[in-house]
Design a protein around this nucleic acid. Structure first.
Lengths: 154, 154
DNA sequence: TTATGTAGGTTCTTTTTTGGAACCTTTAGG
DNA sequence: CCTAAAGGTTCCAAAAAAGAACCTACATAA
């Protein structure tokens, strides 16, 4: 299966990964969440080639994860800003970062500290159920096949 | 920057992506969360080439995300099971799936339904703060550079 | 007027990584 | 002896990424 075919799959993870699941895209998004907006700044912070960056930013805009906004005419300058849809990816980034902080940090600890503004504590992210508010572990989730997909999913 | 250099970066996201951030690894993990354990089953469900699957499973084992367990001698057969460290990636998968369900589904809706066993509702994942229990949005998080990394991080 | 700088890309060539298919090993069963 | 299943490995061609140079439009300054 090719990358391009992934978005055809009857699997939301595959489709999402077709948008954000490549080598650089999540790093671009992370910088976007840290406030980076300009091509040059993404490029110098990430060390990605301009070619690949241009391609990734274009794809994120095409999928409405980022939007391109003109912030100056003459000379025309544009910046990339997260859309609401893009901000919904924040939990993904935060959990990935937290996993790295826990399991891959050296003796200096996490490179960045995340603090929850409302309560002031170092942020420990938890996945909870929006209905009952309880913590959700992998074993607490039952998965059922949507009957409309019963034919293609085992 | 190459894939191999990513894990040298002073960024937990980059380090985490060096482990799980490639084209196939998250799909392997998703199937692992759905109960898949054997090489052949991963291979036939994902359509990934055996070569790449072998490499990815090996990396996940090397990073203790999966463990290889012999479930039968004569002939020797092994299976791959999630470790505790691997299960901690569940929130990542769930949020990615949920994003795809919301934004990339067709008229049939989500391919899979996730139900919270304890309360019985369709699971809507939320990221909350473990200390205060409140919902956390991107704008609620303050980021500070760990002083130990002050020299390398802008 | 020419030179220098900046934002935002595009083009070109060389490496790396994938995809695809075939092949290998161990053991069981007929 | 032949076939089948599980779990891989090897080989080659195709696709994607890296690295560097180049391009455009405008501004400023000499």
């Amino acid at each position: 299966m090719r990358w391009q075919e992934l978005d055809q799959q009857p699997c939301s993870l595959a489709r999402t990964l077709a948008v954000v699941g490549d080598r650089w895209t999540l790093l671009v998004l992370r910088d976007a969440f840290l406030g980076v907006r300009r091509f040059e700044e993404f490029q110098s912070r990430l060390g990605v080639t301009r070619h690949v960056l241009s391609d990734r930013l274009g794809k994120l805009v095409a999928h409405s994860v980022l939007e391109k906004r003109v912030y100056q005419e003459r000379p025309r300058r544009q910046e990339y800003r997260l859309t609401e849809r893009g901000r919904e990816l924040h939990p993904v980034i935060l959990h990935l970062v937290q996993w790295g902080d826990r399991h891959l940090a050296d003796e200096r600890g996490a490179p960045l500290f995340h603090r929850h503004r409302q309560c002031g504590h170092r942020l420990q992210a938890r996945l909870t159920c929006a209905d009952c508010g309880e913590n959700v572990e992998a074993r607490d989730v039952d998965v059922e096949v949507n009957p409309a997909f019963a034919d293609v999913l085992s």
